[in-house]
Write a protein that binds this DNA or RNA. Structure first.
Lengths: 140, 140
DNA sequence: ATAAAAATGGACTTCTTAAGTCCACTTTTT
DNA sequence: AAAAAGTGGACTTAAGAAGTCCATTTTTAT
């Protein structure tokens, strides 16, 4: 039960984009965040394909956000980097399970999975960037 | 983000114990649940060391619960099988992190981790065994 | 007493997958 | 046209989960 390094790298990189007006190149992000740049390249491609960021090539190229950070939920990233549909081994492979199909335990496990998903849906990239106006929320 | 097979095996085995009056031997559990028995042996040892079950040796020996199943939270098992303290890589190893010590992101990640922990605390072994009197709860 | 049936402990192997690398290619700017 | 950027995919490495093995101890039935 552990967040993958990929997801953590992705969050860090996206926070960089939140804090930048111009597009940021792979190299800039990688060196700033101390992430191996070929590995980050792969992560950024996933983010591009997942429609979380946009990229431009050539000189002055780089990555930037497509949508405002308060509209990006951590859950969107969870889906990209923590391949879904196998929260539990037996969710996709019945060979580990003496009771294929629905069973009491599975129902309970799904309940837990849903709580986890909810936790990821409740956090925005904005919040990860430390820019949430929590005071507003807190006041009422 | 995935439940380990060990934890799932542990839950299944414990449910067997809930449903049994006498102690169950490793072999009985392993064959009933189709779990490789030397592997289950390791799991049962973890449960014994974790004070979740008790064991007796020799003929007629086996495993049995020490405490009533409604007092065993899934979180107790989570602690035994999903080694804590590394929900996030950087929680225990700063080398992956350009900002050691507290940072905005870590605070948010902890928040998520807490939601996960809460989800595991909310489920008892009793519930996993399908013996929860939910009707009582639901009524009021 | 002793044999059989059980748990224990720890070292070991195997397998999966996350993490990371590499390279040939395309696109854009100066 | 050269330099600086992203792209795609195949590949390698490393870590940890999953599983095995064996020698030992404990208990019970005969």
């Amino acid at each position: 039960m552990q967040i993958s390094r990929s997801l953590e790298y992705a969050v860090r990189s996206l926070v960089c984009l939140v804090n930048s007006k111009e597009p940021l190149s792979l190299k800039r992000i990688a060196s700033g965040e101390k992430i191996p740049s070929p590995y980050l390249a792969k992560i950024m491609r996933t983010l591009v394909n997942g429609k979380i960021v946009c990229s431009t090539r050539g000189r002055k190229g780089g990555y930037f956000l497509l949508i405002p950070p308060e509209e990006i939920a951590l859950y969107d990233l969870y889906l990209l980097f923590e391949k879904k549909d196998k929260f539990l081994p037996c969710f996709e492979d019945n060979s580990y399970c003496p009771t294929p199909g629905k069973c009491v335990r599975k129902v309970v496990w799904y309940k837990i999975e849903n709580a986890v998903i909810k936790a990821f849906k409740n956090v925005s990239l904005q919040e990860m960037a430390g820019k949430n106006n929590l005071s507003g929320k807190a006041k009422k």
